[in-house]
Amino acid sequence: MAVTLKLAASRLEMVDQARRKKGWTKTSEDWRKAAETSVATLKRFWMGKPIQQDTFINLCQELGLNWEDVVDTGELESSRSSTLDELWEQLSDKATRNIDGSLLEPKQLSEVDQLWQRLTAKAIVTRKMGPVLVTANLSTLGMRPRQAHHYLDTVPLNSDILFKVNLDQKGYLILLEREPSGAVCCLCPSEYAPEFCFDAGEITLPQYPPSPYPTFTATELGQEQMVAVISPKKPPLDWLEISQQEALELNQNQIKALLEYIDRNSKAEVLYTKYLVTAE
């Protein structure tokens, strides 16, 4: 039986405020496309009627809300008493979409794909991090972000970019990138960011210097997904030291270890954002 969720009546105003901040109507096309849903489903959402779990989560994430803060918990508990991981385990049994929008059957999902779903389910969608385009003064290698747009939703193919993250407090940053190809790589720590303990405030990656690379380059068309894990103490993950030398492509065991660390540490903050690399 498919898992469904519905909006709590007491959280309707919270959701409506988030929607107005985005400048969207209650059935906005931009919102529908981002969450991959329909007008009919959005109307059910606003009426507090049950909709598919993955759609409910997507709608909340696009508003920058944690779905657990607005879901009808009585409905959730009565249908099944589940942890977030258990819910996502059920979700992985349903059809999921490729980046190009085509349906991907559950039997085709790799374990890394399923673990990435679990990881992003723990994250809060944020505008506190994202890419900026840069211009270079070749005589000094000084890098300056273009001021017209701060954190971008799209970047041109082969453009040079910086990635910025705003930290509310001092902590250790693990920054993961899920490439359009599906590979999950650790950008911090890596040769782009060998030091991964930062003070509060906006940080810029790559760390140039000591990194020899002044920028990242957008070399692959498609959607880039980014997850930042921020914790007050250094995570005891043995693969972090390896990644400090060269950006590590994570395997399923390494992602599992990170998920287990997050589960054990309530103070770990998990953030998510995405952007498109386009041919324009």
Rank of each mutant, 00 (worst) to 15 (best):
N158L: 14
L84R: 05
I51F: 00
L141S: 12
S79H: 11
K94T: 13
Q61M: 11
L59M: 02
V165R: 05
L76R: 06
L91P: 04
W88Y: 09
H149W: 07
S159W: 07
D69C: 02
V70N: 01
L167W: 02
L65S: 05
D168Q: 12
Q90W: 09
T83A: 05
G171T: 01
I57H: 10
A95V: 14
E68C: 12
S82T: 13
I161S: 03
K164A: 13
L133C: 12
L133E: 06
G101E: 12
E179W: 12
C60H: 04
N166S: 11
L119I: 05
D168R: 06
E86R: 06
I124L: 06
C60E: 05
A136V: 15
L109K: 13
E62A: 13
L176G: 01
G101N: 07
G64Q: 05
T154N: 10
G142N: 12
N66A: 09
A121S: 09
Q117E: 11
I161F: 07
A95N: 14
I124Q: 06
F163D: 04
P156W: 00
V155R: 00
R97Y: 08
P131K: 01
E77I: 14
Q169M: 11
R80L: 15
T154I: 15
R146S: 13
R127N: 14
L175D: 00
E89Y: 06
L76D: 09
E177M: 09
M143V: 05
A136C: 15
L84Y: 03
E68Q: 12
S81P: 10
I51D: 01
L138S: 15
G74M: 09
T120K: 00
Q117C: 06
M47F: 13
A123W: 01
Q117S: 05
S79R: 14
V112W: 03
L119F: 04
T96C: 08
L157A: 03
E75F: 15
L175R: 00
V155Y: 00
D85G: 12
E86M: 08
F56I: 02
D153L: 14
R146K: 08
Q147C: 11
L63V: 05
V70M: 02
L115E: 01
Q61R: 04
L87V: 03
R178P: 01
Q52G: 10
K170F: 10
L133G: 04
Q108G: 09
K49N: 06
L104T: 07
C60K: 05
N166H: 04
N158Y: 15
Y151P: 07
T73H: 11
E105S: 13
L59S: 03
L176C: 04
D153I: 06
G64H: 01
L115R: 02
D168Y: 10
K170A: 14
R118V: 04
M47V: 15
S82E: 09
S81E: 08
G48Q: 03
E89D: 14
K170I: 10
N98H: 14
E89T: 09
D72T: 06
L119P: 03
V112L: 13
D153E: 10
R127E: 09
Q108S: 06
D72P: 03
N166C: 08
N66D: 02
N158K: 15
V165I: 15
Q53S: 14
L59H: 00
K128V: 04
N66M: 07
Y151V: 11
I51V: 02
R178T: 05
Q90N: 09
E75W: 10
L63E: 04
W116H: 00
L175K: 01
G171V: 01
G64S: 01
H150A: 12
S82N: 08
I99Q: 13
K164H: 11
L109H: 06
